[in-house]
């Protein structure tokens, strides 16, 4: 009773039943992405606006109370005026450019070193035994502790700053990869093995893609460390001719220009928030396309 017993009609029936069932099982995807985006934006925005209003209100109250002289602690309005006029000058943007360039270079270097280190440590047992816990230990080190050594090694130069930025970011990035590799679901590795992958092929097609979420959270943390180290570095190591954020801020302090110092603080905060939003968006994208965000 071979295949011919199944008549053409019967085959068609089965195909139809299958697709009928599929239709029923399909999750209807509402096409209101923009509407959803808008309401999500609003849901994320209003608490932030409220917090901002509260902080500025408290600052203004402190200013009005006369706790400090107005030239030491300027009012929000004074700082706002300084910020907006400063933003109209090229100095402001040039400083941000120099600082961001350092941040990006340092971070890129950290990603390269951290990834290579992470994969090596995850792959080779003796290496893990040797430096696995050292990496975690390095992560707890305040970056400022490296500066005396860095200055002795590289004097006052760009390399000094890079050295500290990279030391700050590498451990987090490496750890992101290591824990990602450690927690690759065994089922995926078994699928890879059944499909005939081993060694590098398995790494390339299964293990590394599987570590992506963990890698991105390592990147995010690594960025935070890099950014903090960079700010510390720029305040301590003023490289001649480089009007970076840190250098200009130290200059403002020397002239007792509190409004300018606060202007830079606000700028640094805003940059931090923007970059964090970037990482968050990347993280969300991955979670969404992997189906890890299905609570909504």
């Amino acid at each position: 009773m071979p295949a011919e017993v199944l008549g053409a009609k019967e085959k068609d029936d089965s195909r139809q039943t299958v697709s009928g069932l599929d239709e029923l099982e399909r999750v209807p995807v509402s096409d209101t992405r923009w509407g959803r985006f808008g309401s999500r934006l609003w849901a994320g925005t209003w608490p932030k606006v409220l917090a901002l209003v509260l902080v500025i209100g408290a600052w203004q109250a402190l200013f009005v109370s006369g706790w400090k002289d107005p030239w030491v602690l300027p009012s929000p309005l004074t700082v706002w005026e300084d910020l907006s006029s400063y933003m109209a000058t090229p100095d402001y943007w040039q400083a941000i450019g120099i600082t961001l360039q350092r941040a990006v270079t340092g971070f890129a270097l950290s990603v390269a070193v951290g990834s290579a280190l992470g994969i090596a440590v995850a792959r080779f047992k003796p290496l893990r035994a040797a430096i696995g816990s050292l990496i975690t230990g390095l992560q707890t080190m305040p970056s400022i502790i490296w500066f005396p050594l860095a200055i002795l090694l590289f004097q006052i130069s760009e390399s000094t700053i890079m050295f500290v930025v990279v030391l700050g970011a590498v451990p987090s990035i490496a750890n992101g990869i290591i824990s990602g590799i450690d927690y690759v679901p065994p089922a995926w590795k078994r699928v890879g093995a059944v499909l005939g992958m081993r060694g590098l092929t398995l790494y390339r097609h299964v293990i590394l893609p599987a570590t992506l979420p963990s890698f991105v959270s390592g990147l995010k943390q690594g960025w935070a460390f890099a950014w903090r180290s960079l700010m510390a570095g720029e305040l301590l190591v003023i490289v001649a001719g480089q009007g970076s954020i840190g250098a200009l801020m130290q200059g403002a302090r020397e002239f007792s220009d509190s409004a300018r110092v606060l202007t830079w603080i606000i700028t640094v905060l805003v940059i931090g928030i923007l970059v964090d939003a970037l990482f968050r968006a990347a993280d969300n994208r991955i979670r969404e396309s992997w189906g890890l965000n299905q609570d909504r």
Binding site: W188, L195, H205, A210, S289
Partner: peptide, 26 residues
Amino acid sequence: VAMMFQESALFPWLTVTGNIEIALRV
């Protein structure tokens, strides 16, 4: 030999075709 597991164990970073093509690619 080919094998199919209890849980589908599809790779979430690939589309449906991607999951099938990976077996061919290897």
